[in-house]
């Protein structure tokens, strides 16, 4: 996504979230159970531990057009 698109109000970023199954993935589940709304721009990939996240995955996400990456665990 380019900066020009960033000025467009309709533009929605694409955020890839790597979430640990035992904490932040469960936290995202809890947000769901609690019906806490948040923007649909984030898409979560489940990992068994934040220690599993190889920097290569983060780079790949950016290479394929992600605007942000959330690493959480």
């Amino acid at each position: 996504m380019s900066i020009i698109q960033g000025k467009n109000k309709q533009w929605q970023p694409l955020i890839v979230g790597f979430c640990c199954n035992w904490c932040s993935y469960a936290g995202a589940d809890l947000a769901g159970v609690s019906r806490m709304p948040y923007p649909p721009s984030i898409r979560i990939i489940r990992v068994p531990c934040s220690g599993r996240i190889n920097p290569q995955f983060v780079i790949r996400a950016f290479q394929r057009g992600a605007d942000g990456v959330l690493v959480s665990g």
């Binding site: 694409l14 890839v16 068994p48 220690g51 599993r52 920097p55 790949r60 394929r64």
Partner: peptide, 30 residues
Amino acid sequence: GACTVVCRSGAANLKGFSNEQLLAEVNAIC
């Protein structure tokens, strides 16, 4: 899976959460 990240030769992989599987997920999601 901490071992898989430090492994420089790519010998360590995690069954059920392998490098190939996770990269395929990243590709698909983006």
